[in-house]
Design a protein around this nucleic acid. Structure first.
Lengths: 320, 320
DNA sequence: CTGTTAGCGCTTTCAG
DNA sequence: CTGAAAGCGCTAACAG
């Protein structure tokens, strides 16, 4: 019942605990003979050292916290997969903390991370978060933080995301070439940095002759309603959608109005679901796994380095 | 830079470390006066005890590992949310370990959990897993395990899932009432327990007069191809789909063939995406959050109890 | 190459 | 009510 310890093993082998520890960790000091003897017995008895204790001693937790508002249906699951894979390959584990998009809970989560002494934090801010003061404690006790997805500009913390404005601009340019004179553009909640950036990029690249009907939708349903209205009102047949969630609403409205083939839909998607639902869909390939891996790589880099220097990483995307 | 310790605080206040510890934990032994003085200073200095150390001392990690093949696009994200919420409410944290549906990696993950001394494991098996021998170590060192989602029968470990056969039967019965004489039924990979159970339940409840065309699809695309073929070949207008992924393929084929309104689609869904895409969709409400919460509740129960007794929990579902 | 010793930061008997 | 002391399981100087 009670797990064995290094001491037990040492007593058994008539050597000291430190020898066992070193042998198990392949420390070069230990003679091959002793090393093998220890490792052999360890295997036979199925002994594995308590890594919790080892980490405690080494003042590390080998834990990276991923703090985010919630796990939406697309993108975020891929980000988590990307992060977890990258971390596992480097012998770190992934901890998930949800803030439910509440600033209060974000502070709480960050504090818990500090108390648990996680080795690093990957943070996607909740929408209410306007500054990064609550991350000061991380700074003072030396826990590196990398912002991803929903971020705000900072001159202390690294961040990883795509160049939203540029990508949205690519979408606009694509629409320019299609000889349409009206487009319905649907963004996410207006206060979201992501909405603002993509909107800016979109508008600055869109040809002036094109009329834009704009909407901030908080979910698929709102996007659907708006798209539907636009089709009814203006026979709109070109759409821009900021996310898979929004695109779902658009495509659903388009399909329902049986204007499928003629309609052009452009936007940001992970390319897993939407291309199924509409032939004439062109999207910025917003790959969560890539972002997750990059974010994880960056935090590992910060952990390894001595002087933590800020670095903003822009992930390249392409229009498919 | 170097975080403060209880000892530092104790020196500062001219009391012993144990007093500080007790005061911070609201131990009744400590006089109100001292308690307040300690807590006050702790607040002023922003001191928070190192919970990693405390947990080590208390031989607990306050960590629950969630071990699963991968984070698909639907269902699993909700399960994780449900788990995390329930755990957070009880001061536990969620650790994510991915097995990538490889038995090797599942073993590895379980071993890591044991070495880290997690307080409990929530496990969704990978498809290759045929027995539970690799969980023996958990048994011997006393880490409780709860199986969820993809499980196999066991007489040692608790499990949480829906009654798949019953639910699939409900789908079949619904189809029986609709006066169709042919239905295309699409399941997941054949080796999946979930596929088998649902198939069994479906067939045993389906009226004998109805012809069934069956397919095991590993993704939306295969489901789409099959559904499309069936429509072309038999003018099929009734479909059963085992998951959101499969339903996506079905609905996409149905929409494309412009037989939308006449077609009946029945299956298992989380109800978040699919109802948007097809009016005549009836689905077993497969709510990941509920399952996640139940699984988390069960592991907490096992942790609290002394004699761990196995319990199979069936989550009720309804056809919407 | 191996053992001795000390200690990570906290909790918890056990005394007083 | 408070303090002294031991120790969770492991690692890492420091000796030898």
């Amino acid at each position: 019942m009670k797990p064995m310890t290094i001491k037990d093993l040492a007593n058994f082998l008539k050597v000291s605990p430190s020898t066992v520890s070193r042998a198990l960790n392949n420390h070069p000091d230990i003679s091959l003979e002793v090393r093998l003897r220890v490792q052999q017995l360890a295997k036979e008895l199925q002994f594995k050292p308590n890594s919790f204790a080892a980490n405690f001693r080494k003042k590390q937790s080998k834990l990276i916290a991923v703090v985010l508002p919630k796990i939406y249906r697309s993108f975020i699951p891929d980000v988590i997969e990307g992060i977890t894979k990258k971390l596992n390959d480097n012998h770190f584990q992934t901890l998930i903390l949800l803030t439910e998009d509440l600033f209060e809970r974000e502070i709480e989560a960050i504090n818990q991370c500090c108390e648990m002494r996680v080795d690093g934090i990957l943070l996607s801010l909740c929408n209410q978060t306007k500054d990064l003061n609550h991350l000061q404690r991380c700074q003072t006790i030396g826990i590196p933080v990398v912002l991803f997805d929903n971020t705000i500009k900072s001159d202390c913390f690294s961040s990883v995301h795509i160049n939203d404005a540029l990508a949205a601009g690519q979408c606009a340019e694509f629409i320019n070439k299609q000889k349409v004179n009206r487009v319905a553009a649907i963004f996410g909640p207006e206060e979201l940095a992501i909405s603002q950036n993509r909107k800016l990029g979109f508008f600055s690249a869109l040809a002036k002759e094109i009329t834009v009907d704009i909407c901030y939708a908080k979910d698929s349903h709102e996007a659907y309603t708006f798209a539907n209205d636009q089709i009814k009102k203006h026979q709109t047949c070109a759409f821009f959608g900021i996310s898979d969630e929004v695109l779902l609403g658009i495509v659903s409205a388009v399909n329902e109005n049986k204007v499928t083939n003629e309609s052009l839909v452009v936007g940001f998607s992970d390319g897993l679901t939407m291309p199924f639902l509409h032939r004439n869909l062109h999207y910025i390939n917003h790959n969560g796994k890539v972002i997750g891996k990059a974010a994880a790589a960056q935090i590992l880099k910060l952990i390894a380095e001595d002087e933590k220097l800020k670095e903003d990483i822009l992930i390249a995307v392409e229009l498919l």
